[in-house]
Structures are given as structure tokens and as C-alpha cells.
Amino acid sequence: MNRTDMKDAMAQDVDVATRPQLATSGEILRVRDLSVQIADKTVLDDVTLDIGASERVGLIGASGSGKSMLVKAITGLLPRAARVGGDITMGGTRLQAGDDAAFAALRGRYVGLVFQNPGAALNPVLSVEQQVCLPLRLHYDLDAGERRDRVMTMLERVGLPASLAGSYPHELSGGQQQRVGIATALITSPRLIIADEPTTALDAIVQRSIIDLLVSLVESAGASMLFITHDFAVLSRATTRCMVIDRGRIIETGDTAALLHDPRQPQTRLLVNAAKTLTLNVNPEHHHA
């Protein structure tokens, strides 16, 4: 057992100690007939989806199609003015829209979020260590030394040197900032990771390394993932299933490889073509396909 594995095992302690009921459920996220209206505009329309244990699902859609709204609705981050209908069940809890406390109990513990633009999302007055530690502080009653150990392990796993623990976000590069974001999302070993285009704010070269990092960490933790991205290569490599959202509705869903090679809906075809041109290091065969 090498050092990283040992630390992994330590991180899993948290789950075993505090979430016995979650282990029994094979279903990680269950959404039924989810509808969201904001200012009389329907942004989500009867969305139904399931994510099972260790399943990695991709979500693609044009901008304004409701991708981010879906993420916000699932995690209870919608603006106050939103009207929500339908059912969300996460970690065995049926969540009522507007029950902020119930959502908050799951956020950062059962579901971790990776934001699109870490420069705007990371709290500018918290140091890297304080930031990564925040979900632990909010959900678990650990002593300071133990918390610090976990944070330092996590920083190492996301490839940040320990010397950066005391730095503030504005002192980091964009890639380093997103590594902090990933560490914060994963510090409590959540069962579900939702990543909302986690690399669009980054340089092209950094993008690939961040995605690889995220996918490998989720994989090794055995967590499920909902991944919003336009990166064709990532979709086909990291996700098993893929959903297409258009104007607030899920219009197509299926096996990632099949969906990307043979899109049925015209909107999907448009998106897939756009994704192909945007994707870095695409295999030449994909262009001919």
C-alpha cells in the first residue's frame, strides 16, 4: 500500500462513520419531472434523470439551454425568485424545493461542486487551506490537527505544493485555482461530483491536465459524476452515458459513444459537430466518422 492509498483510506473514514444509510442505496441522484420557472420563463421543463453509483454522466447543450440551471436546481442553488416543481431525491432524502437546510446538509458532504470560473468562485479572503477545509468544518466535527492533515493530503492529491496552503486565490494561476476548487469539492469524499464546464475559464494547455486530474480523482474515489463539458474527448473517455439538453428539456440520452457517433436529434447533431471542432487532440478518425 503506497502513501496515497493510505491517505485515501483515511478520507473514506468520514463516510463510514457518518453515512451508514447512504451505502445501502444504489441510486445516487433521482430527478423526476423537474420544472423551473424564473420570472414566468420556463428554464427547465419536466426533466427526469437518474445517476447510479459510480456512474459518470455527461451533459451537453448549447449556451442558454438550461445546463447550469439544472445543476443549480439539483443542488438548491437557484435564485430565490425561481418556482420549482417535481421531485429530487439525493442520498435517500427527498428534497423539497425551498428547504434550504436540507439541501445545505447534502451540499459539500454528499454532493461536491466544481465551478466554471474558480477565480470568481473561490472566496478571496480565505487562504487555500481555509477554503479547502470549509466543507469539513461545516459537516464534520474534527479537531484542528486532523482537519489539517486531511487538507494537506488533498492538496497533494490535486498536485498543489504544501507551500501554497497559506496563499490567497489571487496569488495563484488559473490552473492552481481550479485545483483548489477540485480539492474543496472532493475533501469530504462526496458520492456525487457535479462539474459545470470546469475548464472553460482556463488556458487550452491547462484544460487537459485539470480534466485528467478531476476524472482520475473521481474514478479512484468510486464516486458518481455529472460532467458538463463540450470536450468531445473527455465525454467519450470519462463518461459512460450522455444527455443532451435543449431549451430546458432533455431531448436525447444514451450511451456516450453511440450518441456522439450517431446523434438522432438535429440539435444534438449541431452540438456534437460544434464539440468536435472545439475538442483538443481529437483523433483524426472522429473527423471522418
Binding site: R107, G112, L113, N117, A121, L122, L134, H139
Partner: peptide
């Protein structure tokens, strides 16, 4: 609707907590 408050909520704060502890601090 700032990302920083959303991130604090994503870490496990309620909206009110996030606004008072992060929004007000910022």
C-alpha cells in the same frame, strides 16, 4: 448571485449563512 456565495453554499452553508458569513464579509 455571485459565484463566491454560491461556492460557500456548495460547501454546505444555507443561503442565509453564506450571505451573512461570506457576502457580508466580502
Amino acid at each position: 448571485d455571485s459565484d463566491t456565495v454560491a461556492m460557500a453554499m456548495a460547501c454546505g452553508m444555507t443561503r442565509r449563512q453564506a450571505m451573512l458569513r461570506v457576502g457580508l464579509r466580502l
